[in-house]
Write a protein that binds this DNA or RNA. Structure first.
Lengths: 219, 219
DNA sequence: CAATTAATCAATCATATTATTGAATAATAG
DNA sequence: CTATTATTCAATAATATGATTGATTAATTG
């Protein structure tokens, strides 16, 4: 085969895959699927799309093997094809943050609105957990917690937090985490906890990032 | 700001950047620019595009700040905005290789045609260089070598190799490298060297990968 | 079996992307 | 200053993408 033709083919295949990533809804879906498998209906609800539209987008992702799916009863569950897909999403997000001041500003503005900026780093958290200084809280929907969570975390979905406050000790610091740096669940939880007199802060990353860098998880 | 509106804005910005990546010619340009700055004319020639078309693509990359440009005399030189851009390209390429069997097959078929499959790994090369068992050859165009190359490498562009064979000792193994895993220059060089009775093999990665993982380079 | 539910399909319209062409700028050389 | 060279701009046409709609398929429930 001729060199130019070879190059054209390889770059075209890679561009086709990249094009499948290059849509705001599909990026959001990838981040959602990084939490674990989900049905078309739940993905549509979470992203605010119609079911037909969500289904079309998922098929676009599937065509380039970025996601896989299996059918269970009348539901079809989609999931990330492998961890490399999430790695690419992490790198893209990182690049966006470093290149696009507008994105950084959007996040900064959104975060400071509720007045909860303090983030706990991963190293910080590991230390505090070792010294039993902190309690780790997974505030994602329970179904996501059950598909996998950070080792030693307990589950109180942010929607149930108000009703379960008495289950939390007031003498220890609480660290909340959620889906990742773009997710607001942990922010909301921290805001509520602080208002109720707890010492609380959010973890800077989410469950998929924790898992991807190889730190201990449970199922 | 409302949560959905915030998410829509962030994902849209990230998707816009990803869309700038999602074109075969632009991916090829990024790989080329990873070797160093280049003028529009040379990029157009290397990628086989018309100058006007290449210019348009470069402006698409520039709009999302993936590349930067500076004018010098009547030439305008484009270069990667920062190393994160190349990291993303590496991850995308890696994902393509792992997800798309067709891409792997294309590369395997192209490589085995000249019958030169043996690749030297990075660790291998470092060892052999330490023991002075191997000579390292940069076979990219001289202009790229001059913008940066692997420490201790000498430059013989693949086009000049035939005329400079007598400058190479026959008693040591020769390791050739070029632009990266998708580039055929090192393959061509190895093929020629072997035909002339040298022991030769190619490095599995190229200069930009070497530099990105933090190994020693020279300018 | 009919009704319900989850997901996909197929068609359509509006919008975006890309290659091509020729004209317009901008810097340099003679 | 004029000619040349490198690049960009602007307009166009062909093609691709994405949201919407209503119909269809497949599994489950009563």
């Amino acid at each position: 085969m001729e060199l130019r033709s070879f190059k054209n083919q390889v770059y075209s295949e890679l561009a086709e895959m990249t094009r499948a990533l290059a849509n705001p809804h599909r990026l959001e879906m990838l981040e959602l699927l990084a939490q674990g498998a989900a049905s078309v209906e739940s993905i549509a609800a979470e992203t605010g799309l119609s079911v037909a539209n969500a289904s079309q987008h998922l098929q676009t992702l599937k065509k380039t093997r970025l996601v896989a799916s299996r059918k269970d009863g009348k539901y079809r569950y989609y999931e990330l094809a492998n961890t490399d897909v999430f790695r690419v999403w992490m790198e893209l997000r990182q690049l966006g943050f470093s290149q696009n001041a507008h994105i950084e500003k959007l996040i900064r503005d959104f975060r400071t609105e509720p007045g909860t900026l303090e983030c706990v780093t991963t190293d910080d958290l590991l230390q505090r957990l070792r010294k039993r200084q902190a309690i780790l809280l997974d505030v994602r929907p329970r179904q996501e917690y059950e598909q996998g969570h950070i080792a030693s975390a307990r589950s109180i979905p942010v929607r149930e937090l108000m009703d379960q406050l008495n289950a939390l000790p007031r003498d220890r610091e609480i660290v909340a985490y959620c889906r990742g740096p773009l997710c607001a669940m942990a922010d909301d939880a921290v805001q509520l906890l602080k208002k109720k007199g707890y010492r609380a802060s959010r973890l800077e990353i989410g469950y998929p990032e924790w898992k991807t860098i190889g730190l201990p998880v449970e199922t």
